[in-house]
Design a protein around this nucleic acid. Sequence first.
DNA 1: CGTCTATTTGAATGTACTCAAAAGCGGTGG
DNA 2: CCACCGCTTTTGAGTACATTCAAATAGACG
Lengths: 190, 190
Amino acid sequence: MYERILKNLSRHIHLSPGEQELFTSCLKRRRLRRKQFLLQSGDISRYECFVDEGCLRTYGIDKKGQEHTFMFACEDWWTGDMYSYLTGQPSQFDIEALEDSSLLLLNKQQMDKLYEQIPQLNKFFRILLQNAYISMQRRINENLMLSAEERYNTFLTRYPQLENRIPLKHIASYVGITPESLSRIRNHRK
Amino acid sequence: MYERILKNLSRHIHLSPGEQELFTSCLKRRRLRRKQFLLQSGDISRYECFVDEGCLRTYGIDKKGQEHTFMFACEDWWTGDMYSYLTGQPSQFDIEALEDSSLLLLNKQQMDKLYEQIPQLNKFFRILLQNAYISMQRRINENLMLSAEERYNTFLTRYPQLENRIPLKHIASYVGITPESLSRIRNHRK
DNA sequence: CGTCTATTTGAATGTACTCAAAAGCGGTGG
DNA sequence: CCACCGCTTTTGAGTACATTCAAATAGACG
């Protein structure tokens, strides 16, 4: 039931069986079918979301109506709009399931209680925020420094499971090019 | 001496005179002349750096030798390579003074002591990390969604003091275009 | 099997790039 | 104070890469 998330925690902190029990008792499971939304633009993101099964996509829409993928999250990733979660401001993002998915949610109030009961969780979520920060820093640099083809390669490295699991057009919108261009890049390298 | 940094703290937390005293006693002042480096690629960033006067630029160099500006920091901003500071890994960035500058530095060990003596500082630096996170999130979206001209506009909004204070070429490398293109964009709008 | 969506391909267009040269600006030393 | 030098910014011409639009093909799902 909770093996995956407990294993995920154990990467950075060690919890006693009692703490594990307490932690998992605060989790809420949410199942999404393909194309259902975890979050819609304008909502406030009230959860930290762990992906137990499936795959989600976080994206924004520009003024011309184009979608731009900010991140993907599949098994073992955490997702949600950290900005909205932290500030309580409405989100500018949509988060959509690309496959039938199963998530474990932690809401913010419970979270704050848990921090007091299991101080190590502070460390865990601080590391999570740090990692999120670091990967965004890296991504900004990639966008500044790399060509479209190189950015696609970094996508492949970052999400090795996803290349043939999700539609090309979403990958294109993550890389920052049109589906046509990505199709050409892919065929170019054969 | 320390008015600016204390005022900066007071945006998010309130310290007693004794705490202010303790805090400022841990600061180290560092002066840089124009073109001197605060950090060079390969170094480990061991400080949180508050800019008291002047202006700095954080940039990376790609494999073709091109510079790409990751951020600017002028009076009242914090700078340093958060990634390197948090992880202890060598930085990939250079941080250079664009003008003669005066900084206030907090090193990590002292920081950890201070966190225990003034717990509110945890809040302050958590907010700092959050804000850094948020502004990067916004920047990734801008890079995905906006044209070169629009990205230049957001630069103007984010750094209103800098338009005529720093060389155009650095702004171009922040926006992600060549100096020639930025020159054309500027003249285009007259 | 048919419909809908995703992907590929082609042709024309556009935006930003490179390279090269000219103009502008600021600081230094005579 | 002026002349010169180096660096920055502007301008021009040709080029490259990704885009748009349109159409054909392939795949997925009911």
